[in-house]
């Protein structure tokens, strides 16, 4: 490598480091603030205390909202997984007219402005009385979790050599057994990644829930926003630190067992 190319490589490395710092900064800065002893969200934090972590548990609305968000994310992910796997198999293993159009339609919510999805879903659900309802939230969240599941499982399915399935069929397995014992195990990494992302996306979703929440049925991001409206003490930083910790664990688990790379491109 020439001297100039090496210098270029170094410069690029430096630049990439700066961008990574930019991406990490607003996330990492939350963590020290959570341990502040002061009562405002200031940086640098004043002193050290764990009282803001204790304060999370002293706020029943935050705990309740976390429970609702987890339940909504769990059910929406489960529903999307069952429906999405079918769609993935149909789109990936059969030929029929309109297949590409259908694939695009299923993936549209990934690029559709979230506020439009929120308005549209609310206009259907509120006349049905599904506002401030658990199932209303689940239905709305399925809009965004279903395409995530379809995308990750489709990416994995495309990598599975069809010869494996054909071998199973040749050896006398019926289509169900071939799916159960060949395709499904090979799909597992995609399913695992899809389920994790879908859960996180739903758990963090703000805009879709906007018109569907209300007293008694708040999701965590909206409850956090409400909390920030009247108090900017470090409680939210503490809660965020907990969420960051859970995300890091999830990322490391996927990275360890599946490999994160292939599921985002």
């Amino acid at each position: 490598m020439t001297q100039r190319a090496l210098a270029g490589e170094r410069l690029l490395g430096l630049y990439v480091g700066l961008i990574l710092a930019f991406l990490a900064l607003p996330i990492l800065v939350v963590i020290p603030s959570a341990f502040s002893a002061g009562s405002t969200l200031a940086f640098p934090p004043q002193g050290f205390s764990l009282r803001w972590f204790a304060n999370i548990l002293a706020r029943p609305e935050l705990v309740r909202a976390a429970g609702i968000s987890a339940a909504v994310a769990g059910v929406a992910t489960a529903v999307s997984l069952v429906a999405g796997l079918g769609v993935t198999l149909a789109l990936g293993r059969y030929r029929f007219p309109g297949r590409e159009a259908l694939r695009m339609l299923f993936l549209t919510p990934l690029v559709f402005p979230a506020i439009v999805l929120a308005v549209a879903v609310a206009m259907v659900l509120s006349p049905l009385g599904l506002v401030r309802s658990f199932w209303g939230l689940v239905l709305a969240h399925v809009v965004i979790t279903l395409p995530y599941i379809i995308r990750t499982t489709s990416a994995t399915l495309a990598e599975i050599d069809r010869a494996c399935e054909e071998a199973a069929l040749t050896l006398g397995a019926n289509p169900w057994r071939s799916f159960r014992h060949v395709t499904l195990p090979l799909l597992r990494p995609g399913i695992l990644a899809g389920v994790t992302f879908s859960f996180i996306i739903s758990f963090d979703e703000f805009t879709i829930s906007l018109f569907l929440v209300g007293p008694g049925m708040m999701t965590l991001p909206l409850e956090m926003y409400n909390y920030a409206e009247f108090s900017l003490d470090p409680t939210l930083a503490a809660l965020s630190t907990v969420l960051i910790g859970m995300t890091v664990v999830a990322v490391l688990l996927i990275e360890r067992f599946v490999g994160l790379g292939r599921h985002f491109t």
Partner: peptide, 19 residues
């Protein structure tokens, strides 16, 4: 590059408030 995608937007927005 990927990890920030998985951190809640509310958390990241609060990070900017702190900054």
């Amino acid at each position: 590059v990927i990890a920030p995608l998985l951190v809640s937007i509310v958390v990241r927005t609060m990070g900017w408030t702190i900054l």
